[in-house]
Computed example of a mutant assay.
Amino acid sequence: MKYINLLILSLMSVLICTSVQAKDEGLYFGASVGSASIEQSGSDYNLDDFKFDENDFAWKIYGGYQFSGVLAIEAGYVDLGSPSDLSTSVDPYGLDIFAVAGIPVGPVRIFGKLGGIYWDTDLKYFEEKITDDGFDLAAGVGLEFELGSFAIRGEVEYFDILDKTWMYTVGATITF
C-alpha cells in the first residue's frame, strides 16, 4: 500500500510539473460564444416597479499575455446580447480586464480570473429609455483543454452589471 501511494504521488507530480513547463507562454487571442443571464429590478416614479430576469445569446473576443504556466493578464470586449420580455429590454456590453491564475493538470488547465469591467447599457421599460454605465467587479472560473498553442475553453463569468449578470461561454484561444 505504501508503494502504491508513492507511485500515485510520483505520477501526479510528473504530470503537473511537465504540464506547467509545456504551457505556451506569450501573446494569445480568443473568441467565445454562449449565453448571458441578466437580472434587474427597480423602482422609479416614472417607471413604477419592475423586475427583469432573462437570457440571450452572448459573445466575446479577448486577448492576453501568458507570463508563465500559471499567470496571465487578459482583456476583451463582451456583448451580453439584447434580452427582453413584454415590457423591458436591455442591451449591455463592455470592456473587461482580468488577472488570470491557472493550475495545469495534464492537458487541462483549471483557471480563475478577477478584474473589472467598464460597461454600458440601454434599459427600455415600455417607452421610457435609460442609459447607464460604470466600472464594476468581474470574476470568472473555467477549464481549458490545451493542444500545443491551441486551446478549447469553457468558462462562467460574473459581472456586477445591473443587479446580476452571468455569462456562460465556450470558445477557443491560440497562443503566438
Rank of each mutant, 00 (worst) to 15 (best):
F176Q: 08
R153G: 06
F135L: 13
G140H: 10
G142R: 06
G171Q: 03
L27E: 01
S35Q: 09
P104G: 07
D160Y: 06
W119Q: 11
S32E: 14
V70L: 12
L137V: 15
V108F: 14
G134D: 12
E54V: 01
F145Y: 15
L86S: 15
L6C: 05
G81L: 06
G69E: 09
K113G: 12
D48E: 09
S13W: 05
V100H: 12
T121R: 04
S32V: 00
D24K: 08
F50D: 08
D122R: 12
G102T: 11
A138F: 11
Y77A: 02
T131R: 13
A31E: 07
A58I: 01
S41D: 13
K51C: 00
A138W: 13
I130Q: 13
Y62I: 00
I73M: 06
A72E: 04
A139F: 13
A58Q: 02
P83L: 02
Y125A: 09
G142E: 10
G171C: 00
G63Y: 06
I16L: 13
F67A: 08
D85L: 00
W59D: 04
A36M: 03
S41Q: 07
G171E: 03
G64V: 01
S84I: 00
F135V: 14
F176C: 08
Y168E: 07
K51F: 01
V105W: 09
G30Q: 09
T88V: 12
E74A: 02
S10Y: 04
S89G: 09
I117N: 11
G140R: 07
T165V: 09
D96R: 09
G115Q: 12
D160F: 07
F126Q: 14
V170N: 03
K113S: 10
K113Q: 15
I97A: 15
T175Y: 09
V90R: 05
L9D: 12
F67D: 05
T121D: 14
E128R: 04
S149A: 13
T18P: 01
D136L: 07
G171T: 01
E54H: 01
G34Y: 07
K164A: 06
I117A: 11
F50Y: 15
V14G: 03
Y65P: 02
I4K: 12
E157T: 12
G42E: 02
T165A: 14
E155R: 04
D160P: 06
G30P: 07
Q21I: 02
W166V: 05
M12T: 14
I174F: 15
T173V: 02
L15Q: 10
G69P: 06
L114R: 03
F135E: 11
M167C: 04
G148V: 07
L80R: 01
L137P: 08
I4F: 14
A22R: 07
D96P: 01
I161V: 15
V105L: 14
L15T: 11
V141Q: 07
F50K: 03
M12K: 02
S37M: 00
A139Q: 11
S41C: 00
I110C: 10
I16K: 05
L11K: 02
